[in-house]
Amino acid sequence: MEYSEARAIIEALIFASPGPLSPKRVGEILDLDSRTIESIIRDIKDKYHRDKSGIQIVFVAGGYEMTTRSEYADYVAKLNVGVRQTLSRPALETLAIIAYRQPVTRPELEKIRGVRVDSVLNTLMERRLVRVSGRKKAPGRPALYSTTSGFLRWFGLASLEELPPLAQDFDSLGF
């Protein structure tokens, strides 16, 4: 297969994929090693960049995805494609705690936040940023909450490792 053909096919795959397309999946379809795939995708990304395209390829939730460039957000929004609301502060705080402490129960979340989180949690579940990932083996079998791949896409994160490390010790917090 010629390079230009492989490049065209990969571009088509990313375009048609219903979600982030993992390099592994591309490898299964094209029988190419991951290094070649990654270099081809870098090539496509460069091309978009050179052409000042309105489209870009980003790596989120473990795969490649085509998106519009944020510079043109105002225009795209006029298509009524449903611009999402930014999340409230309590929602972000609850999400952050879930992201680092997952899987976590509701009482554990409430202990850290100091307020009830049930309504926030429902909003996050409805937006599919958080899901019930299991039940804790404790009295009452409380639900355990984890973040979803939708969470990673929402924030443009390749994986959870991309979140900043938590401040570990007392001193670094300036107390």
Binding site: I14, F15, S17, P18, G19, I55, V58, E65, M66, T67, T68, R69, S70, A73, D74, V76, A77, V81, G82, V83, R84, T86, L87, L92, R127, R128, L129, T148, S149, G150, R153, W154, F155, G156
Partner: peptide
């Protein structure tokens, strides 16, 4: 949250 609000994915998954 703010930065990625203006980035529209090609595929709009149910979760977004």
């Amino acid at each position: 949250d703010e930065a990625w609000r203006g980035v529209f994915p090609r595929s709009r998954p149910s979760e977004i």
